[in-house]
């Protein structure tokens, strides 16, 4: 990382942080503040935009520019800001209900446009602020106040959804894994265009241990598939499992029995998102072997760059706007 005159304290505000004690959001906040301090980007150039929900209180705790907006709309508001101010670094903080339920439309459109905003989706698989209803990422059968007999909604797989929208940068991390989170934040920052980061975040009040298969000491070695660019996708206590692509899907096999040439070598930069999508489908939710890391980092022109180039082209072709000429452009006549 670059050297910086900032410390984490420069990004803390005087506002009391009001998440529940033990909430995964605290760790994410620390990761983001550390990353920002290390990054050295002038803090007046940074804007955090959020929607509504527990995670969306985030901007109040970041001493940058920020806006805590309305439910689901943060990507739209951030899009207007980024499109009109390409000089800024615009970050969206959202949750599974905010981004995937009420704001699903804005999320997919921001991603397909490749507008230069960085979207941090804190996925705790539950509605926290409204006290515990099932969310669009809650597992099928999830019993909550609003689903006493179990949720009957098939959940979204956020990474697969983002890849389906052909997002150019898609990653998944865990609240507890601060080094990985900071690494992914930096990569997202360097990426030109929209970045989507799903952060598995523990809600210790309404959905505790939802991610235990990936965070528990015993479980994680069996389930966590770390994606590393250029390396074969293998995992397990002794790296004895491997991921291959066969019959149109990614599959977990015993490494020993696999033809080494068949083992997938992770390539973030594939222009076609099909393999990344197949990896995302290895698990549907944080259960069993689940890939963590950067699924895709494939460059494509950004919305604001295309917008700026059209403006530049129009100005070159037609000259800078002349209001007098505009008003006369439909033909005029003189009355004397």
């Amino acid at each position: 990382m670059t050297t910086s005159a900032y410390t984490r304290a420069d990004f803390q505000t005087d506002q009391e942080v009001r998440w529940c004690p033990g909430c995964g959001d605290y760790t994410i906040l620390a990761s983001v503040q550390n990353f920002m301090a290390n990054m050295g980007l002038p803090k007046e150039k940074i804007v955090f935009v959020s929607g509504i929900g527990c995670s969306s209180r985030f901007p109040y705790y970041m001493n940058t520019y920020g806006m805590h907006t309305i439910h689901g709309r943060a990507p739209a508001i951030a899009t207007g800001l980024a499109a009109s101010r390409p000089d800024l670094s615009v970050w969206v903080v959202t949750g599974d209900g905010d981004a995937l339920s009420i704001g699903g439309n804005h999320l997919i459109h921001a991603l397909r446009r490749n507008i230069d905003i960085k979207i941090l989706l804190f996925n705790n698989q539950i509605y926290g602020l409204t006290k515990g209803q099932y969310s669009p990422t809650s597992e099928l059968g999830k019993r909550t106040k609003s689903s006493p007999m179990g949720a009957i909604d098939w959940p979204f797989n956020p990474v697969a959804l983002a890849l389906g929208a052909e997002a150019t940068f898609v990653a998944r991390t865990l609240d507890m894994d601060r080094p990985l989170t900071q690494e992914i934040l930096e990569r997202a920052y360097q990426h030109q265009g929209a970045a989507f980061i799903e952060i598995y975040q523990n809600c210790n009040v309404f959905n505790d241990k939802a991610f235990i298969e990936l965070t528990g000491k015993e479980e994680r070695v069996h389930n966590r598939i770390d994606l590393r660019h250029g390396e074969p996708i293998v995992f397990g206590p002794n790296q004895e499992k491997a991921v291959i692509f066969r019959d149109g899907r990614a599959q977990v096999v015993d490494r020993a029995s696999a033809d080494p040439s068949e083992i997938l070598v992770h390539d973030e930069t594939r222009p076609d998102p099909t393999i990344a999508f197949a990896l995302a489908q290895l698990s549907h939710g944080p259960h069993g072997p689940t890939p963590i890391g950067i699924f895709r980092d494939a460059p494509r022109d950004t919305y604001e760059r295309l917008m700026a180039s059209q403006i530049a082209e129009a100005q070159q072709r037609l000259g800078a706007g002349d209001l007098e000429a505009l008003l006369r452009s439909g033909g005029t006549w003189e009355v004397t």
Partner: peptide
Amino acid sequence: RRKNFGVRTFQAEDEIAAIGATIGAAFGGA
């Protein structure tokens, strides 16, 4: 059609995004 005036037009995905983007642009000083 008037991009040579520096006009940024944004065809939003829906009406809500249109007002949202407009609020974002206003925050940014447009």
